[in-house]
């Protein structure tokens, strides 16, 4: 019987004290309409809280939205915590206000994709479908 394949599960997180949530919400709704199961955690979550949520929800992708400038510390910490918790196969992507100059270091740290202002939902959806773990 032609059963639909399992939707890709994505956690959309807002780490740290950043209160800009428009982008995260636009993305959450947009990805739902693209067929993803999107878990939105709300504002001001710690890295440990995001890791625990990613594990409890058994997501394939964690997407962080950061417009506060705290990406350089928060994102590498998130990747290493996920790895330490046995969730190293979860794809980590980020978006928001992340200067070009900071990107190589983040990519080095294991952030698979970085999406700035003007990104379309279709771009993000295509990237996640191509890069999220298969099951």
């Amino acid at each position: 019987m032609a059963e639909r394949t399992t939707p890709i599960r994505v956690l959309i997180a807002k780490p740290g004290l950043d209160g800009h949530d428009r982008g995260a919400k636009v993305l959450a709704r947009g990805l739902r309409d693209e067929g993803f199961e999107v878990i939105y955690t709300g504002l001001r979550r710690t890295v440990d809280a995001i890791v625990a949520a990613a594990i409890e929800e058994d997501v394939d992708v964690v997407g962080c939205s950061i417009l506060s400038g705290a990406h350089a510390t928060l994102l590498p910490k998130l990747v290493s915590s996920l790895r330490a918790s046995g969730a190293g196969d979860v794809l980590v992507v980020a978006g928001g206000i992340i200067p070009e100059a900071d990107r190589p270091a983040l990519e080095q740290a294991g952030i698979a994709g970085i999406f700035g202002p003007g990104t379309t939902i279709a771009e993000v959806a295509t990237f996640l479908r191509a890069n999220a773990r298969r099951r």
Binding site: P7, R32, G35, V38, Y40, T46
Partner: peptide
Amino acid sequence: SGGALLGDRVRIDEHP
């Protein structure tokens, strides 16, 4: 779409 927006965690504190 077959997708879903699951937002209940917003109301539930995390206890990592």
